[in-house]
Design a protein around this nucleic acid. Structure first.
Lengths: 140, 140
DNA sequence: TTTGGTGCAAACTCTTTGCAGGGTC
DNA sequence: GACCCTGCAAAGAGTTTGCACCAAA
Protein backbone atom coordinates (compact mmCIF):
# COMPACT_ATOMS: atom_id res chain seq x y z
CA UNK A 1 0.00 0.00 0.00
CA UNK A 2 3.03 2.21 0.15
CA UNK A 3 3.36 2.26 -3.60
CA UNK A 4 2.10 5.27 -5.45
CA UNK A 5 -0.41 3.55 -7.71
CA UNK A 6 -2.29 2.24 -4.74
CA UNK A 7 -2.21 5.58 -3.04
CA UNK A 8 -3.66 7.20 -6.15
CA UNK A 9 -6.51 4.71 -6.15
CA UNK A 10 -7.02 5.08 -2.45
CA UNK A 11 -7.41 8.83 -2.76
CA UNK A 12 -9.51 8.63 -5.91
CA UNK A 13 -11.88 6.10 -4.34
CA UNK A 14 -12.65 8.52 -1.58
CA UNK A 15 -13.92 11.00 -4.14
CA UNK A 16 -11.03 13.41 -3.87
CA UNK A 17 -9.00 14.59 -6.80
CA UNK A 18 -5.58 13.09 -7.01
CA UNK A 19 -2.84 15.71 -6.86
CA UNK A 20 0.90 15.46 -6.28
CA UNK A 21 0.46 17.22 -2.93
CA UNK A 22 -2.08 14.73 -1.72
CA UNK A 23 0.01 11.78 -2.78
CA UNK A 24 2.98 13.29 -1.02
CA UNK A 25 1.05 13.91 2.18
CA UNK A 26 -0.39 10.45 2.28
CA UNK A 27 2.96 8.90 1.55
CA UNK A 28 4.54 10.96 4.29
CA UNK A 29 2.07 9.64 6.84
CA UNK A 30 2.93 6.09 5.89
CA UNK A 31 6.65 6.75 5.79
CA UNK A 32 7.02 8.65 9.02
CA UNK A 33 4.97 6.15 11.01
CA UNK A 34 5.28 8.08 14.26
CA UNK A 35 1.91 9.82 13.97
CA UNK A 36 3.40 13.03 12.66
CA UNK A 37 2.24 16.59 13.15
CA UNK A 38 1.30 18.73 10.17
CA UNK A 39 4.65 20.43 10.48
CA UNK A 40 6.51 17.13 10.37
CA UNK A 41 4.59 16.15 7.27
CA UNK A 42 5.58 19.39 5.61
CA UNK A 43 9.24 18.87 6.53
CA UNK A 44 9.18 15.36 5.21
CA UNK A 45 7.55 16.38 1.98
CA UNK A 46 9.71 19.39 1.35
CA UNK A 47 12.69 17.28 0.33
CA UNK A 48 10.94 16.31 -2.89
CA UNK A 49 8.26 18.97 -3.06
CA UNK A 50 9.77 22.12 -1.62
CA UNK A 51 6.91 24.34 -2.69
CA UNK A 52 4.09 22.62 -0.82
CA UNK A 53 2.71 25.05 1.71
CA UNK A 54 1.80 24.29 5.28
CA UNK A 55 -1.71 25.54 4.61
CA UNK A 56 -2.16 22.91 1.94
CA UNK A 57 -0.86 20.23 4.25
CA UNK A 58 -3.49 21.21 6.79
CA UNK A 59 -6.23 21.33 4.17
CA UNK A 60 -5.18 17.97 2.84
CA UNK A 61 -5.09 16.33 6.24
CA UNK A 62 -8.48 17.83 6.96
CA UNK A 63 -9.92 16.42 3.73
CA UNK A 64 -8.39 13.04 4.39
CA UNK A 65 -9.97 12.89 7.78
CA UNK A 66 -13.30 13.97 6.38
CA UNK A 67 -13.15 11.10 3.92
CA UNK A 68 -11.98 8.67 6.56
CA UNK A 69 -8.62 8.03 5.04
CA UNK A 70 -6.83 9.00 8.23
CA UNK A 71 -7.58 9.80 11.86
CA UNK A 72 -6.58 12.59 14.17
CA UNK A 73 -4.75 11.73 17.34
CA UNK A 74 -4.89 14.11 20.24
CA UNK A 75 -1.91 14.22 22.53
CA UNK A 76 -1.00 15.64 25.87
CA UNK A 77 0.68 18.64 24.40
CA UNK A 78 -0.95 21.01 22.07
CA UNK A 79 -0.45 19.74 18.58
CA UNK A 80 -2.65 17.58 16.47
CA UNK A 81 -1.11 14.44 15.10
CA UNK A 82 -2.30 12.24 12.29
CA UNK A 83 -2.64 8.53 11.87
CA UNK A 84 -3.05 6.75 8.55
CA UNK A 85 -4.13 3.54 10.25
CA UNK A 86 -7.81 3.12 10.78
CA UNK A 87 -8.01 -0.40 12.16
CA UNK A 88 -9.05 -0.38 15.77
CA UNK A 89 -5.98 0.12 17.87
CA UNK A 90 -4.74 1.83 20.97
CA UNK A 91 -1.85 4.16 21.52
CA UNK A 92 1.37 4.00 23.47
CA UNK A 93 2.48 7.43 24.64
CA UNK A 94 6.11 7.85 25.55
CA UNK A 95 6.52 10.39 28.32
CA UNK A 96 10.11 11.09 27.40
CA UNK A 97 10.20 11.35 23.65
CA UNK A 98 6.65 12.31 22.69
CA UNK A 99 6.73 9.28 20.43
CA UNK A 100 3.40 7.59 19.86
CA UNK A 101 3.23 3.90 19.07
CA UNK A 102 0.38 1.74 17.89
CA UNK A 103 -0.90 -1.07 19.98
CA UNK A 104 -3.11 -3.74 18.51
CA UNK A 105 -4.64 -6.28 20.81
CA UNK A 106 -7.75 -8.10 19.75
CA UNK A 107 -7.75 -10.15 22.91
CA UNK A 108 -7.84 -6.98 24.98
CA UNK A 109 -10.65 -5.50 22.90
CA UNK A 110 -12.66 -8.59 23.46
CA UNK A 111 -11.94 -8.59 27.16
CA UNK A 112 -13.19 -5.02 27.40
CA UNK A 113 -16.26 -5.76 25.34
CA UNK A 114 -17.17 -8.62 27.60
CA UNK A 115 -16.47 -6.58 30.68
CA UNK A 116 -18.75 -3.76 29.62
CA UNK A 117 -21.49 -6.12 28.52
CA UNK A 118 -22.05 -7.16 32.09
CA UNK A 119 -20.91 -4.07 33.92
CA UNK A 120 -22.68 -1.17 32.38
CA UNK A 121 -22.24 2.51 33.00
CA UNK A 122 -25.33 4.32 34.21
CA UNK A 123 -26.67 6.89 31.74
CA UNK A 124 -23.98 6.30 29.18
CA UNK A 125 -23.98 4.47 25.88
CA UNK A 126 -20.52 3.33 24.87
CA UNK A 127 -19.54 3.71 21.25
CA UNK A 128 -15.85 3.09 21.47
CA UNK A 129 -13.06 2.61 23.94
CA UNK A 130 -9.53 3.80 23.41
CA UNK A 131 -6.69 3.02 25.76
CA UNK A 132 -4.04 5.62 26.36
CA UNK A 133 -1.13 3.59 27.55
CA UNK A 134 1.37 5.95 29.07
CA UNK A 135 4.95 5.06 29.88
CA UNK A 136 8.14 4.82 27.97
CA UNK A 137 9.80 2.95 25.19
CA UNK A 138 12.84 0.98 26.26
CA UNK A 139 15.72 0.03 24.04
CA UNK A 140 15.90 -3.61 24.66
CA UNK B 1 -13.73 19.97 50.80
CA UNK B 2 -15.88 22.52 49.06
CA UNK B 3 -15.76 24.88 52.00
CA UNK B 4 -13.36 27.76 51.81
CA UNK B 5 -11.28 26.99 54.88
CA UNK B 6 -10.31 23.64 53.50
CA UNK B 7 -9.51 25.13 50.13
CA UNK B 8 -7.26 27.68 51.81
CA UNK B 9 -5.37 24.90 53.57
CA UNK B 10 -5.22 22.83 50.46
CA UNK B 11 -3.60 25.64 48.52
CA UNK B 12 -1.33 26.66 51.38
CA UNK B 13 -0.10 23.10 51.88
CA UNK B 14 1.08 23.00 48.31
CA UNK B 15 3.38 25.94 49.03
CA UNK B 16 1.41 28.51 47.08
CA UNK B 17 0.21 31.76 48.53
CA UNK B 18 -3.47 31.89 49.21
CA UNK B 19 -5.20 34.64 47.28
CA UNK B 20 -8.85 35.37 46.57
CA UNK B 21 -8.28 34.56 42.92
CA UNK B 22 -6.84 31.16 43.67
CA UNK B 23 -9.62 30.29 46.03
CA UNK B 24 -12.13 31.34 43.42
CA UNK B 25 -10.48 29.28 40.70
CA UNK B 26 -10.26 26.19 42.82
CA UNK B 27 -13.84 26.57 43.98
CA UNK B 28 -14.98 27.00 40.40
CA UNK B 29 -13.38 23.71 39.41
CA UNK B 30 -15.23 21.94 42.19
CA UNK B 31 -18.52 23.70 41.49
CA UNK B 32 -18.61 23.31 37.74
CA UNK B 33 -17.73 19.61 37.87
CA UNK B 34 -17.77 19.19 34.09
CA UNK B 35 -14.01 19.56 33.62
CA UNK B 36 -14.23 23.18 32.60
CA UNK B 37 -12.06 25.15 30.22
CA UNK B 38 -10.12 28.19 31.41
CA UNK B 39 -12.76 30.36 29.81
CA UNK B 40 -15.55 28.59 31.68
CA UNK B 41 -13.68 29.08 34.93
CA UNK B 42 -13.38 32.77 34.23
CA UNK B 43 -17.09 33.06 33.43
CA UNK B 44 -18.01 31.23 36.58
CA UNK B 45 -15.75 33.35 38.72
CA UNK B 46 -16.74 36.67 37.22
CA UNK B 47 -20.08 36.71 38.98
CA UNK B 48 -18.37 37.32 42.31
CA UNK B 49 -14.95 38.50 41.15
CA UNK B 50 -15.51 40.46 37.98
CA UNK B 51 -12.00 41.80 37.82
CA UNK B 52 -10.12 38.50 37.62
CA UNK B 53 -8.37 38.35 34.31
CA UNK B 54 -8.20 35.37 31.99
CA UNK B 55 -4.43 35.51 32.15
CA UNK B 56 -4.54 35.01 35.87
CA UNK B 57 -6.90 32.10 35.49
CA UNK B 58 -4.41 30.45 33.15
CA UNK B 59 -1.50 31.18 35.45
CA UNK B 60 -3.41 29.84 38.40
CA UNK B 61 -4.43 26.64 36.65
CA UNK B 62 -0.85 26.21 35.53
CA UNK B 63 0.44 26.60 39.09
CA UNK B 64 -2.17 24.23 40.42
CA UNK B 65 -1.16 21.59 37.95
CA UNK B 66 2.50 22.12 38.76
CA UNK B 67 1.73 21.51 42.43
CA UNK B 68 -0.47 18.55 41.64
CA UNK B 69 -3.64 20.08 42.88
CA UNK B 70 -5.40 19.48 39.60
CA UNK B 71 -4.85 17.69 36.30
CA UNK B 72 -5.17 18.69 32.70
CA UNK B 73 -7.55 16.79 30.50
CA UNK B 74 -7.05 16.80 26.79
CA UNK B 75 -10.09 16.48 24.59
CA UNK B 76 -10.87 15.83 20.97
CA UNK B 77 -11.25 19.47 20.17
CA UNK B 78 -8.68 22.05 20.82
CA UNK B 79 -9.16 23.35 24.32
CA UNK B 80 -7.55 22.30 27.51
CA UNK B 81 -9.85 21.31 30.30
CA UNK B 82 -9.09 20.97 33.97
CA UNK B 83 -9.93 18.36 36.55
CA UNK B 84 -9.71 18.87 40.31
CA UNK B 85 -9.96 15.15 40.96
CA UNK B 86 -6.68 13.31 41.17
CA UNK B 87 -7.79 9.84 42.19
CA UNK B 88 -7.26 7.36 39.42
CA UNK B 89 -10.21 7.49 37.10
CA UNK B 90 -11.17 7.31 33.49
CA UNK B 91 -13.19 9.66 31.35
CA UNK B 92 -16.48 9.43 29.54
CA UNK B 93 -16.55 11.64 26.47
CA UNK B 94 -19.92 12.59 25.11
CA UNK B 95 -19.79 12.96 21.35
CA UNK B 96 -22.83 15.20 21.26
CA UNK B 97 -22.42 17.61 24.12
CA UNK B 98 -18.67 17.76 24.71
CA UNK B 99 -19.46 16.87 28.29
CA UNK B 100 -16.81 14.88 30.11
CA UNK B 101 -17.76 12.56 32.93
CA UNK B 102 -15.64 10.74 35.45
CA UNK B 103 -15.58 7.00 35.58
CA UNK B 104 -14.22 5.18 38.58
CA UNK B 105 -13.87 1.44 38.40
CA UNK B 106 -11.42 -0.29 40.64
CA UNK B 107 -12.44 -3.69 39.35
CA UNK B 108 -11.56 -2.60 35.84
CA UNK B 109 -8.21 -1.19 36.92
CA UNK B 110 -7.39 -4.48 38.53
CA UNK B 111 -8.48 -6.42 35.48
CA UNK B 112 -6.17 -4.33 33.32
CA UNK B 113 -3.30 -4.66 35.75
CA UNK B 114 -3.62 -8.41 35.73
CA UNK B 115 -3.96 -8.49 31.99
CA UNK B 116 -0.79 -6.53 31.43
CA UNK B 117 1.13 -8.50 33.99
CA UNK B 118 0.95 -11.57 31.81
CA UNK B 119 0.69 -9.98 28.41
CA UNK B 120 3.45 -7.51 28.12
CA UNK B 121 4.16 -5.01 25.44
CA UNK B 122 7.53 -5.38 23.74
CA UNK B 123 9.89 -2.48 24.34
CA UNK B 124 7.45 -0.53 26.44
CA UNK B 125 7.21 0.06 30.16
CA UNK B 126 3.69 0.94 31.26
CA UNK B 127 3.29 3.69 33.82
CA UNK B 128 -0.41 4.30 33.60
CA UNK B 129 -3.45 3.39 31.59
CA UNK B 130 -6.32 5.75 30.91
CA UNK B 131 -9.48 4.72 29.18
CA UNK B 132 -11.21 7.14 26.87
CA UNK B 133 -14.72 5.89 26.80
CA UNK B 134 -16.48 7.55 23.92
CA UNK B 135 -20.21 7.59 23.41
CA UNK B 136 -23.08 9.59 24.73
CA UNK B 137 -24.93 10.37 27.88
CA UNK B 138 -28.54 9.26 27.87
CA UNK B 139 -31.30 10.81 29.91
CA UNK B 140 -32.69 7.84 31.59
C1' DT C 1 9.84 43.75 54.12
C1' DT C 2 10.27 40.28 51.02
C1' DT C 3 8.49 37.37 47.94
C1' DG C 4 5.36 36.07 44.93
C1' DG C 5 0.78 37.12 42.57
C1' DT C 6 -2.20 40.08 39.59
C1' DG C 7 -3.85 42.59 35.54
C1' DC C 8 -3.18 44.14 31.26
C1' DA C 9 -1.72 43.90 26.70
C1' DA C 10 1.28 42.16 23.49
C1' DA C 11 3.27 38.04 21.61
C1' DC C 12 3.21 33.28 20.29
C1' DT C 13 1.78 28.78 18.40
C1' DC C 14 -1.09 26.05 15.94
C1' DT C 15 -4.70 26.01 12.74
C1' DT C 16 -8.20 27.98 9.59
C1' DT C 17 -9.78 31.02 5.96
C1' DG C 18 -10.22 34.03 1.66
C1' DC C 19 -8.96 34.62 -2.65
C1' DA C 20 -6.67 34.65 -7.13
C1' DG C 21 -4.40 31.57 -10.05
C1' DG C 22 -3.62 26.81 -11.67
C1' DG C 23 -4.35 21.74 -12.26
C1' DT C 24 -7.39 17.60 -12.58
C1' DC C 25 -10.98 15.02 -14.51
C1' DG D 1 -14.60 23.62 -19.45
C1' DA D 2 -16.22 23.01 -14.82
C1' DC D 3 -14.84 22.26 -10.73
C1' DC D 4 -11.71 21.61 -7.24
C1' DC D 5 -7.16 22.36 -5.35
C1' DT D 6 -3.04 25.16 -4.24
C1' DG D 7 -0.19 28.85 -2.32
C1' DC D 8 0.10 32.78 0.04
C1' DA D 9 -0.78 35.79 3.57
C1' DA D 10 -3.85 37.37 6.83
C1' DA D 11 -6.91 36.19 10.56
C1' DG D 12 -8.39 33.38 14.41
C1' DA D 13 -8.49 30.73 18.76
C1' DG D 14 -6.29 29.41 22.77
C1' DT D 15 -2.52 30.07 25.65
C1' DT D 16 1.79 32.25 27.36
C1' DT D 17 4.74 36.04 28.63
C1' DG D 18 6.71 40.66 30.28
C1' DC D 19 6.27 44.12 33.23
C1' DA D 20 4.73 47.50 36.59
C1' DC D 21 1.89 47.46 40.50
C1' DC D 22 0.02 45.22 44.58
C1' DA D 23 -0.95 41.81 48.29
C1' DA D 24 0.21 37.80 51.26
C1' DA D 25 3.29 35.96 54.58
Amino acid sequence: MTNVTNIRDHIANSGLKVTPQRIAVYKALLDIKDHPTAEMVKQHISRDNPSVSLGTVYKTLEKFEEKNLIAKVRTEDDVMRYDPILDKHHHLFCQKTEQIGDYYDEELNQLLNEYFQTKNIPNFKIEDIKLHIIGEFIDK
